[in-house]
């Protein structure tokens, strides 16, 4: 069991108003599962992903990562998990605007303490795998949306995480590039990685083995891909 969440809620207080982004979600994800999370806009998919990625903390409920309560982990343990266990592709990419693609992809390796030569080598491989071998010295504002998305994917994969969390990883890609990325995910899945993808597209979801549907902060359905 890699991930187990129980009764997780997330509240946002906006002045007098309280927004219930998640209203009590239970979810178990095993090692080497390939999961798609679907649901309408605003249903809480990104909120859930941030939680799973150890970036956000639930308002109530419990999250165990590898059998350990995340709420009890100290900062350094969380940093370690974010660095080595989880690769996160953000819906909004979150690249360093002043650094080129290569440096952005190297970033997790810097915090993993690898030597510059090894870092560069691995970042180049990761960029080539997403088809950006010829754009390594471009800064984010010198790249298209799809290219930025691929830099974000390369960064998520570069440190060989056991779990890949991807929030709309193909949202900005044409269907052919999207398929290439999905093939990459399929490879990773076959190598034993755990993959969790948020998507709107049924085509993309079909690559997964299991689909979780969210609506208004609750799980509507959870089952194998038909």
């Amino acid at each position: 069991m890699v991930i187990r969440i129980e009764g997780v809620t997330k509240l946002y207080r906006m002045g007098a108003e309280t927004i219930h982004a998640l209203r009590g979600v239970n979810l178990e994800i095993r090692r080497n599962e390939y999961l798609a999370i679907m649901g309408p806009s605003g249903s809480g998919k990104s909120t859930l992903m941030n939680m799973l990625g150890c970036l956000d903390t639930p308002s109530a409920g419990r999250y165990d990562f590898n059998g350990k309560d995340v709420a009890r982990m100290v900062d350094d343990e969380l940093a370690e998990i974010r660095n080595r266990e989880i690769g996160f592709v953000f819906q909004t990419f979150n690249l360093l605007p002043r650094s080129d693609a290569l440096h952005n992809v190297e970033l997790p390796l810097i915090y993993a303490g690898l030597s510059p030569a090894v870092r560069r080598e691995r970042a180049l491989v990761a960029l080539r795998n997403v088809g950006l071998g010829d754009r390594i010295h471009h800064k984010p504002n010198e790249m298209s949306g799809g290219q930025r998305q691929r830099v974000a994917i390369a960064r998520a994969l570069v440190n060989h995480p056991s779990i890949l969390l991807a929030d709309e990883p193909t949202g900005n890609l044409d269907s052919r590039t999207g398929e290439e990325i999905m093939a990459l995910f399929e490879d990773l899945y076959e190598q034993g990685h755990t993959i969790i993808v948020v998507t709107h597209e049924e085509d993309i979801a079909r690559h997964a083995r299991r689909v979780v549907r969210l609506r208004d902060g609750l799980i509507e359905s959870d089952g194998p891909v038909p």
Binding site: G53, L55, D75, D76, A79, E80, R82, N83, R84, F88, F90, N94, L95, L96, L107, P108, Y111, A112, R155, N159
Partner: peptide, 11 residues
């Protein structure tokens, strides 16, 4: 800082 932390920067 948020980006760095999200990819594993320690405090």
């Amino acid at each position: 800082i948020g980006i760095r932390k999200s990819v594993g920067a320690r405090r």
